[in-house]
Measured scan of single mutants.
Amino acid sequence: QWIQSKREDIVNQMTEACLNQSLDALLSRDLIMKEDYELVSTKPTRTSKVRQLLDTTDIQGEEFAKVIVQKLKDNKQMGLQ
Score class of each variant (00 low, 15 high):
S41I: 15
Q52A: 15
T57Y: 03
Q4G: 03
L31E: 03
K34F: 11
K49A: 04
K49Y: 03
K43R: 14
V67H: 07
I10V: 03
N12R: 14
T15K: 02
L23F: 02
L19F: 01
T47P: 10
K76G: 14
L72R: 03
D58T: 13
Q60L: 08
E62I: 00
Y37S: 05
K71Y: 10
I68M: 11
S41E: 10
R46D: 10
K76F: 10
S48Q: 15
D55P: 03
L26T: 03
K71N: 11
S41Q: 15
V11C: 09
A17V: 14
C18P: 09
G61I: 00
S48D: 14
D30T: 04
S48M: 12
D55M: 13
V11F: 02
L39A: 15
S28I: 06
R29W: 04
I10G: 02
K49W: 02
L27Q: 09
D55S: 11
V69P: 05
L54A: 08
T15E: 02
D30N: 07
D36N: 03
S22E: 03
V69N: 00
M33H: 15
D36C: 01
L26E: 08
D24C: 08
R46N: 09
E63G: 06
N12K: 13
A25N: 08
K49E: 04
E38G: 05
D55G: 05
G61R: 11
S41A: 14
D9A: 09
C18L: 05
E16C: 01
C18A: 12
K66M: 11
I59R: 10
K43V: 08
Q70G: 12
M33S: 15
N12S: 10
Q52F: 07
E63D: 09
E62S: 03
D30G: 15
V50N: 02
K71L: 09
K49C: 01
D55Q: 09
T42G: 13
E62P: 06
P44K: 09
R51W: 01
M33T: 15
D24A: 12
K73T: 14
V69Q: 09
E63K: 06
V40C: 09
T42P: 01
L53G: 07
M14T: 13
Q70E: 15
Q4S: 15
Q21P: 01
S41V: 15
N12G: 11
Q52V: 04
N20Y: 15
L26F: 00
L72H: 02
W2V: 03
R29H: 08
E63Y: 01
T56Y: 14
K49D: 07
E38N: 06
V11E: 07
R7M: 00
K71Q: 12
D24H: 04
E62C: 03
L19D: 03
N75D: 13
V67M: 03
A25D: 12
L27A: 10
P44T: 09
Y37D: 06
D58H: 14
E8S: 09
V67D: 06
D24T: 09
F64T: 12
R29L: 14
R51E: 09
I68W: 00
Q21G: 07
L23W: 00
K49V: 02
R46G: 04
L23S: 03
L31N: 02
I59S: 09
V40T: 00
T47H: 15
K43T: 01
R7I: 01
T45A: 06
A17D: 14
V69D: 09
V69H: 05
L39M: 10
